[in-house]
Structures are given as C-alpha cells and as structure tokens.
C-alpha cells in the first residue's frame, strides 16, 4: 500500500502467500489483474491470517484477535472492496467480519474474473489451450454451500470453451476435499480412506484431463489425491485463475 486507495484490495491469504503451489495461483491472478489494468493493492507484510482455521477448530479467542487486528488495518486504509482467491478468507470477510466492525464489498476471484470477462476487460484467446478439453469442476464448500456461488466459476469455464463434465456429487451435493474446518493442519481421524482420495477418485473417473478448482486448499488436497490415483501425468489440478491466465489474448 502506498497511500492511495486502490480500486480493489487483493487479499492473498496465507496459502496464496506461502504455499509454493498456491503462489502460482496468486501470480496467475495478479497477472490477470495487471494485464487488464485493474488498479489493485496488496497489504503485503501487513496481511495476517483471517483466523478462519482457528475459529473452525474452536479457538474463538485467536479468531477474535486476528479479526480485531485485520479489521483495524483494513479500516485504517479505508478499504472498501476486497477480492480474494481463497474461499475461506472470502467467507470470513463476507459473513463473519461484519459483526465485528469490518464491512467490505467482498468478491471471490472466480466471480471477479467472470465479471471482467463479461465486461470485456478480459479478452481470451480464440481457440485457447483449453478449448474442447474435458474438464471437471470441483465446488469448494466455502464458495458453494457456504455462499451459494456455483455458476460464476462455471461461466468462466464456459468462456474458456471447455467440455465440462460434472461429477455426480456437484454443486449443493459437492463432496468436500477434506481440508476445511482446520483439517488441512492435522492428520485425518482413522477411517477407510482419506477424503481427498475419495474425491480425487471421483474426479479422475469423469475422464477429465483437468480438475478445475477455486480454492488453494482444494488444489493441494486434490493434487495429492490424483497422485494417489497415480494419474498425476494425465490429470492436472488447476485453479480457474491459472486457466484464464494461460488463455489471455496477447
């Protein structure tokens, strides 16, 4: 931040900032924003965990502390509009910070990208890399069931001219990747399989070459799941931002 109030604040999130796989999503999204000339800012070192995994694990104290500090920083900069590539951050900003004094227009990056396409600001290559490719889409819980966003990401895929093959468990019936509720940070409880294995198997069985995702945690979980299926050479897990970044017209 350099004193100016930007068009939009890009909230990168912890995964997008630190996780090597998720950094590629962050860079792809930033590249899109730069390409279409959206004036955006990041908080950089002033950004901190929203507190989502703390709250969902039951640690409300820590959540409230993180929220207090984040809201102070955001309000201090007069932030009005936030875009984020993480559905967990999105959910906290949209649904949980308002009660604590943090009211912003919050938009998930897939919705934002969809708007930019509809407004003609993002121009996609004719016959891009994904045209006609068999692709399945994984609804993240915190974009889907949590916030009823099912169509915007699918519209982006449609704009990319892919052949979308839905899994049986999609939209409101979508199966979790296994990361939510702070599960990302601990071993699963004993069971007969892992949730990400179950979900990746379903995705691989659609015959898709790409599993499109909208969440850095889902991307990690599904990538591991695809490896477990020994399909990592033929099936890629990609964030929708990465697919769009690769399809931008010159």
């Amino acid at each position: 931040m350099n004193g100016e109030t930007p068009e939009v604040l890009f909230w990168v999130g912890c995964a997008g900032s630190f996780d090597q796989r998720a950094q590629r999503i962050t860079k792809a999204f930033a590249q899109i924003l730069e390409k279409v000339g959206v004036q955006f800012a990041i908080l950089g070192k002033e950004e901190a965990c929203t507190g989502d995994p703390a709250r969902r694990s039951g640690n409300e104290f820590l959540f409230q502390m993180m929220a207090y500090n984040n809201i102070a920083v955001l309000n201090g900069y007069g932030i009005k509009k936030i875009v984020t590539a993480c559905p967990h951050c999105f959910n906290v900003f949209k649904n949980e910070y308002p009660a604590l004094g943090g009211e912003y227009e919050v938009i998930h990056h897939t919705t934002f990208i969809n708007q930019l396409i509809n407004d003609g600001r993002i121009v996609l290559k004719e016959g891009g890399a994904f045209k006609g490719k068999k692709i399945t889409y994984h609804d993240s819980c915190y974009l889907g069931r949590a916030n009823n966003i099912y169509e915007a990401p699918r519209e982006v895929l449609e704009a990319l001219d892919v052949e979308l093959v839905e899994m049986k468990r999609c939209k409101t019936n979508g199966l979790c990747c296994g990361a939510g509720g702070a599960q990302m940070f601990k071993e699963e409880e004993p069971g007969k399989t892992r949730i990400n294995f179950e979900r990746a198997e379903e995705a691989v069985n659609t015959g898709a070459n790409i599993i499109a995702a909208n969440c850095p945690f889902c991307t990690t979980m599904l990538t591991d799941g695809v490896k477990n299926q020994e399909k990592e050479d033929s099936v890629k897990v990609m964030d929708i931002a990465e697919m769009v970044a690769q399809s931008l017209a010159d």
Partner: peptide, 28 residues
C-alpha cells in the same frame, strides 16, 4: 498437537504455517 502448532503459528507468524511474516509478499 498439530492444532496447537497451527494456533501458535497463527499467533506468532500470522499464518497457520511456520513461515516468516516478512516473506508474505515474496511472490510479488
């Protein structure tokens, strides 16, 4: 124990993993 570590990281490093907050914008 893993959740205790996660919470400790969030509190001290502002992220659920043990990364330095100074590296948060390293990607940029």
């Amino acid at each position: 124990q893993e959740w205790n570590l996660m919470s400790g990281n969030i509190e001290n490093n502002m992220a659920p993993w043990k990364f330095s907050p100074d590296d948060r914008d390293q990607w940029a």
